[in-house]
């Protein structure tokens, strides 16, 4: 484990904590896309199929359990919690899951490192994670006014992606035979999706004004 990977995992973890804190303490999920959260729950469920079959490390297993539990509890909060669910912007969050899930599934069936159920599911989760943020970005674009916590949540997710790219570069140069085109390309696509958001985030931070996206 290198420093970029650890920092990437920690920012990823922080993004989830920020979101759970917002939902749990303010009892509001305003500005958060349920579609994106459901896609993330699906991403973790399909990626971590190996959780009970392949032991990598205690760290790995615990982090997987945290990501599974947190993503499903966020979905539960937004759908079931009697106060939180009232703040959900249902009419604005109209992105269709299937438009993202189907192409990712098809792509994973054709492009994968090994044609087995677990491997295809793993590849599917990589493709889906790359685009799962889209409903969230569309929602941000529509509501334009972003509260601090939502802004920090998306920022931390983007930071996590950027750090993972540094992790791959580091591993490529330090570990023999570490070549993973599928992971790299889908990871790069995912990070690029944040570029536009980052531009506005840094501008608002630099000018010390509230983050607001253009119409």
């Amino acid at each position: 484990m290198n420093i970029f990977r650890l920092a990437g995992d920690m920012t990823h973890l922080m993004s989830v904590i920020v979101l759970l804190l917002k939902i749990h303490t303010i009892k509001s999920c305003a500005g958060i896309s349920l579609k994106t959260q459901e896609l993330y729950a699906l991403v973790f469920a399909t990626r971590y199929l190996d959780i009970f079959t392949d032991f990598i490390s205690l760290y790995n297993t615990i982090m997987k359990l945290i990501f599974l539990a947190s993503s499903f509890s966020i979905v539960w909060y937004m759908r079931q919690h009697k106060i939180v669910r009232r703040s959900y912007d249902k009419d604005q969050d109209t992105f269709r899951h299937l438009f993202l899930i189907l192409p990712c599934l098809l792509l994973a069936l054709f492009i994968n490192e090994k044609f087995t159920f677990k491997e295809v599911m793993w590849t599917f989760s990589l493709f889906l994670e790359a685009v799962a943020i889209l409903p969230q970005l569309v929602l941000l674009q529509r509501t334009r006014n972003i509260d601090n916590l939502t802004g920090q949540y998306v920022f931390l997710l983007g930071a996590y992606r950027a750090l993972y790219i540094l992790n791959w570069i580091y591993r490529y140069f330090t570990e023999p035979h570490y070549v993973h085109w599928i992971t790299w390309i889908s990871g790069l696509v995912q990070t690029l999706l944040y570029a536009d958001f980052f531009y506005y985030y840094f501008n608002s931070w630099k000018n010390n004004v509230k983050l607001q996206l253009p119409a």
């Binding site: 990823h12 990598i56 790995n60 992790n167 591993r171 992971t183």
Partner: peptide
């Protein structure tokens, strides 16, 4: 064991 793999990532 085995080759380094992106499967050990989260």
């Amino acid at each position: 064991t085995g080759q380094p793999s992106a499967h050990d990532e989260l």
